[in-house]
Amino acid sequence: MSGPPQGSGPPQGSGPPQGSGPDGGAAVIETRGLTKRFGRQTAVDGLDLSVPAGAVFGFLGPNGSGKTTTIRMLLGLANATSGTASVLGQDMPGRLDAVLPRVGALVEGPAFYPFLSGTANLRRLDAADPHSPRATRRQRVADALERVGLQYAGSKKVKAYSLGMKQRLGLANALLRPRELLVLDEPTNGLDPQGTREVRNLVRSLAAGGATVFVSSHLLAEVEQICTHAAVMRTGRLVAQGTLAGLRAAGQPLVVVRTPDAGAARRVLDSLGLVPGPPTHGADMADGATVTAKLPAAARDGAPRPEAIVAALVADGVRVRGFSMESGSLEDRFVELTGEGFDVAR
């Protein structure tokens, strides 16, 4: 796809969830003009993020778009150059000690002491918080390990763990206590398909339990399957945020035509005011090519109806073997928003 990259401009999408409106409840994460500069390089630029309570919020963007830096600022690991952030209704990093015990986090991949066992690592990280109850530690660690399927590997040293097992252990660390907010940075990194499914189920069960889940990812499919809301970052800026349905609806509808007469089809679509892309050939050449065409936003109101498009194609002798209107696949929407180089998972 070659959607025009829209680097600047106001965030699009359905109206962003309101911070503390009477209808939506308080925002769990709220930032105002959050900015982080490293020397002359701006990693995060004027971020206005609003994550409603109870949402499963997908935080999308290509590698290096500022997602992890944002998460570090939200968790008080890095200081913002300017702007403010509040988490669970309290100022960060000012009220860090009150906020962080209620937040479970997986930041930029799991990290453990390789010379300690999984269980010992979790106990160590749990003991790092002076307020975490010592009496229930053993039980909570065992429960967290079981929740991520590591109950039989807890006594193994972490250096013997695979990447996927470390990722699971990192998730277990985030689940050591009941949390109101989970911040998960690339939670399915390194996991096999089975593990990815388990993480999805885990996120769903956490959300069902009332927690807000903030998942960063560069994998669109992951977000599309589990999230209720999403925000898209591009080179440090927020280019869209809102409900998933809202983001989808804001995308350009696509016309997909399967035909052996690709050239003729493109001419017809072009004459109707659509913007056809280059034809793509399926594995079976005899079956013809697939031509997709975008409906430009300007022409959307007076756009021809689907049946009129088919009629025009047939009238011009195009052998139409398949036709569909795909109104706003999220993937197209994100390629539109983030331009080239976006790592789209299929």
Partner: peptide
Amino acid sequence: GLGTLRYLLVAPAGRARL
């Protein structure tokens, strides 16, 4: 170097205490 510093701090261990 291990990366555990960030997890200790978000636990939160408290920087002075750590």
